[in-house]
Amino acid sequence: MPADLNPSEMVAARRPATRAMLYVVLGILGLFFLAPLAVMVLTSLRPIEEIRSAGIIGIPQTLTLDAWRAAWSQACIAAVCEGLQPYFRNSLVIAIPATLLSTLLGAINGYALTKFRFPGADAIMVLIILGCFLPLQAVLIPAAQTLSALGLANSIYGLILIYTVYGLPFTTLFFRNYYVGVPSEIVRAAHMDGAGFWRIFFQIMVPISWPIAMVSVVFQFTGIWNEFLFGVSFTTGASQTVTVALNNLVNTTFGVKQYNLDMAASLIAALPVLIVYLFVGRFFVRGLTAGSIKG
C-alpha cells in the first residue's frame, strides 16, 4: 500500500494543540494503568506503621525489604509459616511440564490437521477448538470426581493432567494457524523421498516451529501460573499453587492487616509472568490474537 494511502496517516491529528491533548489523554490513561502496580511496589517497601498512619497511597519515608522477606519465607498460610516459597515451587513444578506437554501435543495436532487433511479433519478441528470457550465451571464437578477416582486429588500430577488437557484447544489452534501457512509442497517432497509422518514432523516441522512454540509456551505458562478455579478446587495444604496460596495468605491473616505483606506477596506471585511479559511480550500478544503472526 503506498504511503499516502495509509489510513492512520490521513486521519492522524496534526494541529499542535490537538497533539498536546492527545499526549495528555494518553498520559492519564497510562497513569491509570500503572497506578496499581506503583502502589503495590511502594506499599510493599514501606513499614506497616507508616502505612497505617498514612494509607496505602503515598511516597515511602522509610524503605525496607522486611515485607518481601516475610512474604517469601515466613508468612503463615493456614498453620504453615513458610511464606509463599513452597507454593511458588509447586507452581513451577506444575506449570513447566503442563506447558511443554500441551505445546508438544498442540504441535502434533496442528501438523496432523493441516498437512494430512484426512476425512473428518475439519470436524475434529472444530471439536477441539470449541474447547477454547468452555467455561471451566461446566466441568468442575466431573473433573473433581475423576481426579479423586484416579487417586490424583490434591496432587501436583492431577493439576498437570488438567492443565495439559484444557490447554490443548489453544495450543492446537496456535499450531494449526501456523502450519496452514507452511507450504505443503515441502512435506509432500519429503514424503516422496520416503520420510514418514514422524520423521517429517521432527526433521522438517519442528525446526521451523520455534516462533509459534514460543507463543504457545508463553501463553500456556502465563495461563497456568495465573489459574485459580482449578487450583483452589483441587488442591489444599501443601500442594496449593502460588495463586491459591496468595489468596489464602491475603484472606486469612488474623489481627491487623499487613498491607505491605499482601502487596509483597502479590508481587512475588506476579513476578514470573511479569518477567516473561517484559522479555518476550510480543509472543504473549500473539497468543492473545490466536498465534497470528501479523497481530
Binding site: 494503568f33 497506578a35 497511597i57 511479569l274 511479559y277 517484559l278 492473545l288
Partner: peptide
C-alpha cells in the same frame, strides 16, 4: 512502551489484580 503499559495487566493474574484493587 505505551502498549507495554496498557497490556501488562492482562499478564497478571486476576487474584493479584483483585488484591491490588481491593485495597485501592
Amino acid at each position: 512502551p505505551l502498549r507495554t503499559i496498557f497490556l501488562y495487566p492482562a499478564a497478571v493474574s486476576l487474584i493479584v489484580t483483585g488484591i491490588a484493587w481491593k485495597w485501592l
